[in-house]
Design a protein around this nucleic acid. Structure first.
Lengths: 469, 469
DNA sequence: CGATTTGTACCTCTACATTTT
DNA sequence: GAAAATGTAGAGGTACAAATC
């Protein structure tokens, strides 16, 4: 088989220059699984660094005396496990986050200032005591403790719709469910509406927990380029025309991690691409309270433009209280059955007690008050940040709970992060948020809402700035 | 291609007797998807009844002038969607629950007595008021409202371990996580430890929400026969030797829906089969409080016999309070990372407030008191049931919240259920709980713990008995 | 801009295991 | 218990699309 390669005399020589050569002796049938597990071992062990180009399918096949589609299958297995990624016409590469997991983010290192994980100015949580006690004394408390109304009690849903009407959401109670936080909402939406192997378009840099979740559910992400107004419609259109894309995930109010706010014009343009390609839109709008009514050109969520095929997620963790685990999810009528079924299969229901506390907070006006406090804290924290990094001013969302700091190109991004950890601060490198291939741009995401005080934040930023100089 | 079939002159005639003939004109490339979606349409529309045998792959392939493995792929797609099931050497059949979904069970029909959905004697929920108020006045309340300790606060975990020690569980806090109810625990375990296409062995009749969840996550169930002592080890061993099985799901304390209690001898035997075949055990022990210390021969959960490869799930919904959505999950050390990651991706964390209430209930002794009340109610309800169905006495768990009533073979099971609904009671037919192929035995699952009073339950049972005569 | 490299989709083929007859 | 029927697993092959040179 190999002997026939007269047209490529160099080939037999190249066999010795393959970037990865599995041990032929270790190969056993089924070959594709055998190859995949050898590759996995070498990646996890660190022999193959992130970004390494793997041998083309045909070359590796020649080397192993197999048909190249068998290599396709082996590579595909590893791709599903998030270890590698492939670009047609270009090659197959070791994924940026192949060796280590992105998550496990809340094991805060003690004696360290956390600028990595984004909390929500937890100082405001003591404001809730009174409301919780009020709910605990309601005479209908036992009604909150049974299996009834799995998607939320009617009055809770009415209050939820009212809360979201400030952001431009109009929906009926049938199109709404109360779930256990925004991440839970994402898990439900992805499980309900997509199948393993489906593809979802995202910003090139996107919410790392979404990347992890997609990996867990074997859903592939399709990175799409963007600019300062959000994802580029032409780039999305192009991807959709090339491969079958089933959905799109966006955070238009304030993209995580880039802090990009999508303009209304861009929403209109993207909506028409979404409609044309029958995409299911997952819109995570946890930052609505920071954007709607505050930014002058805010008009409405993207979901409003494609209501039938979108899932709108409004978490209350960032705006009201992180520990109560309540989010509102609004969906098109024909997705209703699948979503309710999935809620039942993943949660059964969300604690009606937690939902009631959030409801009471909103009804009493306390929620709005807390949200205002968080906004003020965000403003102060951002001003502090700009004192350290003045050139960053006027980029992205002005009240974001985190910032996206460009840094010089790094030899070894992990090295930088671990050095900063040694110096007492935790930050996340941009590679953690990559949905696609790494490029030459490097950033750090700097959480402003996690340090326990502005003083602590200032110390953290000082350490950061000194180290970057 | 077809002309070569001289050995089967009958074949061309048989083309006209296929049980399902897709419209050739509607077929487009890719064929396998095209065939799958035509088949799906005909099943969902009701043209193909549950149990219908589909044409063998080779015959349909002949009819459509395709290779038979293309039909394999089409059938496999539909099998993954839960529409059909296949038996090697026998044929491919429309699944029993293909057309309708099993779940959506809590939309209680008003003015109807619910003997279908299994609640947990919700009468006891008013007992919780005092404890909830106590928790609401704790000075560390704000500490329960942030992102910290996603798997549970240390003292909550200590109390959890103490609660489970009564059932024979010994574990370290690292092997424990607090999640949002038993169903949530199942979703986490399946997502974390299995991949789409993996197989899990279950009892022939098993928890219908588990069936639905597996379908949702594209995990296939392998039905295994059992007797009055639980699943048969030889049958499990046989299945494992024939196809690759990755896990096993069991409810040894009181199987749902059959009320079978597994003997300790059977646990020992199954443990050795599980060990020999490297199965991951998912043990749902929500009924532990009804079994441990009550049944004389109870020794320990099955997980104790294979601690490294098992996930033990102990929900508090049935024993303490259904609305708080708290379950404990105990896992082997090497599963820890995947499970924590998955918890983070699906829940972020479980409300520490709910967990604290359950913790306080246990610490104060109130939980034990409520559990005792529920046991007493279960005893009364079971005695009532035996007054109606005396021949059923001495079968299965004596304190089960539901019973498994054999009924005569039915022409059309759905018909029976809908007639009963018209008569004012809701029950579930055994087909809803089938993990495999239907057989000639028929049962109804009768929930005893959902009616709002014993009087209501008595009315429901009267209607049921009259209708079955 | 056309040729080359590289990955993808999907169809076909073979060997084989299980169940039924 | 052998032969036939039926489904499954793995591997090979072709057409094609995208990226690069």
């Amino acid at each position: 088989m190999e002997d026939g390669k007269i047209t490529m005399p160099i080939n037999s020589f190249e066999h010795y220059t393959l970037t990865w050569k599995p041990d032929k002796k270790k190969l056993a049938r089924p070959y594709y699984q055998s190859i995949a597990s050898l590759l996995e071992q070498d990646i996890v062990a660190g022999f193959l660094m992130p970004g390494t180009k793997l041998p083309p399918q045909r070359e590796l096949a020649d080397f192993l005396d197999l048909n190249f589609t068998t290599i396709t299958r082996a590579y595909k297995l590893c791709e599903m496990r998030g270890l590698i990624y492939a670009i047609t016409g270009n090659g197959t590469f070791v994924a940026p986050n192949a060796a280590q997991s992105i998550t496990i983010s809340t094991d805060r290192t003690k004696n360290s200032i956390d600028l990595g994980f984004v909390a929500s100015f937890e100082q405001t949580n003591s404001e809730l005591t009174e409301t919780i006690q009020k709910v605990a004394s309601k005479n209908y408390l036992p009604e909150l403790l049974n299996y009834n109304d799995p998607t939320g009690l009617p009055h809770q849903k009415a209050v939820a719709l009212n809360w979201m009407s400030a952001f431009g959401i109009q929906a009926t109670p049938e199109q709404l469910a109360i779930v256990s936080g925004a991440q839970n909402a994402l898990a439900i939406a992805l499980t309900a509406l997509f199948e393993p192997g489906n593809r979802i378009a995202t910003d090139l840099y996107t919410y790392s927990n979404f990347i992890e979740l997609a990996k867990l559910l074997h859903i592939q992400l399709v990175p799409v380029a963007g600019d300062q107004a959000g994802m580029l419609p032409a780039a999305l259109e192009k991807q959709c025309s090339q491969i079958q894309v089933h959905g799109i995930f966006l955070m238009p109010s304030c993209s995580n991690p880039t802090t990009v706010m999508m303009t209304d014009t861009r929403k209109q343009e993207l909506a028409s691409v979404i409609r044309r390609n029958n995409l299911i839109l997952i819109e995570d709008d946890m930052h609505a309270f920071l954007t709607a009514g505050i930014l002058p050109d805010y008009r409405q969520p993207l979901s409003n433009l494609v209501p039938e095929t979108s899932v709108y997620i409004c978490g209350t963790s960032k705006s009201i209280c992180s520990g109560l685990r309540v989010a509102y999810i609004v969906f098109g009528q024909h997705m209703r059955e699948m979503i309710l079924r999935t809620i039942f299969n993943i949660n059964v229901k969300t604690s009606a007690l937690d939902a009631e506390i959030v409801t009471e907070l909103i009804l009493s006006g306390k929620a709005q008050q807390i949200a205002s406090q968080k906004k003020e804290l965000a403003q102060i924290a951002n001003e502090l940040y700009y004192e350290f990094f003045p050139s960053e001013k006027n980029s992205g969302h002005p009240l974001s709970f985190y910032r996206w700091l460009p840094i010089p190109q790094q030899e070894d991004p992990l090295q930088l992060v671990s050095e900063l950890t040694k110096n007492g601060i935790r930050v996340f490198h941009s590679n953690r948020f990559l949905s696609g291939q790494p490029n030459s741009e490097h950033y750090l995401r700097i959480a402003l809402s996690t340090a326990s005080s502005m003083d602590e934040l200032a110390i953290g930023l000082t350490i950061l700035k000194e180290h970057l100089l």
